[in-house]
């Protein structure tokens, strides 16, 4: 569904991604594992259009994605939750969730449907929906960022190190939510990055490792 072919990215003249190729498939959860500075975030940013490619191609269902501006990629159904949650601090939690709907001019019914879906997956967000985005804790903020990405993600959702900094109990909640998400949304392709391999064993269908900007051997995850 979403295909990267020989993607190269250079930042300030330094090659950060080298011939990265992989495919995300509907209903499949792909986990991208790599050390700090390996290029995980850059891979997601390249898919989202937040950094320019110096070579290669990205396609979504056969159509070129890398030639589209970032906002158009969101409108095509690619959702992204960045590493450092980045909520709009003066918007309430619900306004943060609704921002993509506002941006994409979804009609009221569709907006409601997506919001209800997010609230049913993440009921804790409904409880704090009036709170300002700037007044959420690190863990809560990650949940909001996940919910916000899901408002966009009709086809693909990309989560950058979602477990980093989460207390164990919250991390378990988050993992459970992901499992429910996959049940509720069978055709959704997931791409999750992590720096340590163990955390995602239970939900990974495919594991990729990235090192110094290059993808290593592709190994199916143990089930």
């Amino acid at each position: 569904m979403l295909k990267l072919r020989d993607v190269n990215v250079a930042i300030a003249g330094v090659r950060v991604l080298r011939d990265v190729s992989f495919t995300l498939r509907p209903g499949i959860c792909t986990v991208l594992i790599g050390r700090n500075g390996a290029g995980k975030t850059t891979t997601l940013r390249a898919i989202m259009g937040l950094v320019p490619l110096t070579g290669g191609a990205i396609t979504l269902e056969g159509e070129a994605l890398h030639t589209q501006p970032s906002y158009a990629r969101a409108r095509l159904g690619v959702g992204y939750a960045p590493e450092d949650r980045r909520l709009i601090s003066e918007f309430s939690v619900e306004e943060n969730l609704l921002l993509p709907a506002l941006a994409m001019k979804l009609d009221a019914a569709e907006r409601r449907r997506r919001l209800d879906e997010v609230y049913s997956l993440l009921p804790q967000l409904a409880e704090m929906r009036k709170r300002p985005g700037g007044a959420t804790s690190g863990g809560q903020g990650k949940m909001v960022a996940l919910g916000r990405a899901l408002m966009v993600a009709q086809k693909v959702v990309m989560l950058d190190e979602p477990f980093q900094g989460l207390a164990p109990a919250l991390a378990q909640d988050y993992a459970k939510t992901l499992a429910e998400l996959r049940k509720a949304h069978e055709g959704l392709a997931l791409l999750i990055t992590e720096s340590s391999p163990n955390l995602l064993d239970s939900i990974a269908d495919e594991t990729l490792s990235i090192e110094r900007g290059a993808i290593g051997a592709e190994a199916p995850a143990p089930h």
């Binding site: 989202m48 906002y71 969101a74 960045p82 003066e90 918007f91 921002l99 941006a103 994409m104 001019k105």
Partner: peptide, 24 residues
């Protein structure tokens, strides 16, 4: 609508763009 999109872009233009806002 436009007012809220403007606030979002002021605070974080990159995330705004990634959430579907045509920042141009």
């Amino acid at each position: 609508r436009y007012g809220k999109l403007i606030s979002a872009v002021v605070e974080d233009r990159e995330v705004s763009e990634a959430l579907g806002i045509n920042t141009r």
